[in-house]
């Protein structure tokens, strides 16, 4: 296959040379006698030049013939599969379909190539929201254990968390069975409205204690807007589809560290305020307070 393509390339190249040299012959003939042929014996010089050019053309022609002779003829007519039927289309506006088909084939080929590359790069990134495995039996198992759990399991999880932190009071409501929405009040500092999807945290909004429990409206205070953003980051960080209970617990553990939101100074700069905001970031492992700019 590789050799065939090489030979085809060399044959095409020799045809190209032949064409350009034939063009030179016609150019020279159409120009006729030129000033650079001089005065003495100009006809002879012209004929000589023409002969030289024709010799080159002859040589090129021989090259082409030998290159073509080297080519192996295809074993039979190309098998286009079902696409061959497109050529039999008689309606005017559908005759261009074959070209479009080839184009789209090229596109899908490119998409395949790029997605394979992207897949390789993304595999090294651990922030996966969905768990992907190539073993179908395994996938089915994890999906049932995540999204489609019985309400009692979630209920147990919530009561466990409630017991784990004495200063977090949790009230749960179930607007969409079986997925609960819980309000977690952290001491007298803030409250978070957390929506679950099965055993996974789907959405978090942090607000002041006096604000409404609406899941979709953000807080009117800058500090709680910032904390909401950070909670989203932590939610993705702790997310683990294989161990959803652990993910929720570590998230709540991290979230619990916000009980010092207003009272703890930044670990890095030692100040309370930076840009009129207290340290709104908590380190994911050490739970130490940092400003957005100091972390």
């Amino acid at each position: 296959m590789e050799r065939d393509i090489e030979q085809l390339n060399s044959a095409l190249n020799s045809i190209k040379t032949l064409r350009s040299n034939v063009r030179r012959v016609f150019e020279s003939v159409s120009n006729g006698l030129r000033a650079d042929h001089g005065e003495d014996g100009k006809e002879n010089k012209f004929i000589h030049e023409l002969q030289e050019l024709l010799t080159t053309v002859n040589n090129n022609l021989r090259d082409v013939e030998s290159a073509v002779g080297n080519l192996t003829p295809p074993p039979g007519p190309f098998n286009l599969g079902s696409t061959a039927f497109l050529g039999q289309e008689t309606t005017q506006e559908r005759q261009a379909l074959y070209g479009q088909l080839v184009n789209s084939y090229k596109w899908t080929d490119k998409v395949r190539e790029y997605s394979a590359l992207a897949g390789n790069i993304l595999q090294t990134n651990s922030f996966n929201k969905t768990y992907k495995t190539f073993s179908t039996t395994k996938r089915r198992k994890t999906q049932t254990s995540n999204h489609n759990v019985s309400p009692e399991v979630i209920e147990n999880l919530i009561t466990n968390i409630d017991r784990l932190f004495p200063d977090v009071t949790i009230t749960a409501s179930r607007p969409f069975l079986p997925n609960p929405v819980i309000q977690a009040c952290l001491g007298r500092v803030l409250k978070a409205i957390i929506a679950f999807k099965g055993l996974m945290i789907e959405w978090v909004v942090v607000k002041a204690l006096s604000e409404s429990n609406d899941l979709w409206a953000e807080s009117r205070y800058k500090v709680f807007k910032k904390v909401t953003e950070n909670c989203h980051a932590a939610m993705c960080h702790f997310h683990s589809p294989m161990m959803p209970e652990l993910a929720v617990k570590s998230f709540m553990h991290w979230f619990h560290s916000y009980n010092t939101l207003f009272s703890a100074p930044c670990k890095r700069c030692g100040n309370h305020l930076l840009g009129n905001l207290p340290p709104t970031w908590r380190d994911l492992r050490t739970l130490e307070p940092y400003h957005e700019e100091c972390k």
Partner: peptide, 21 residues
């Protein structure tokens, strides 16, 4: 007034820093 906080003990240090500012 520091509006997000409702317990003086929690935010007094923070408010003192702001006042000193």
């Amino acid at each position: 007034e520091y509006r997000p906080c409702v317990v003086p003990a929690m935010c007094w240090e923070l408010m003192r820093e702001f006042l000193q500012g």
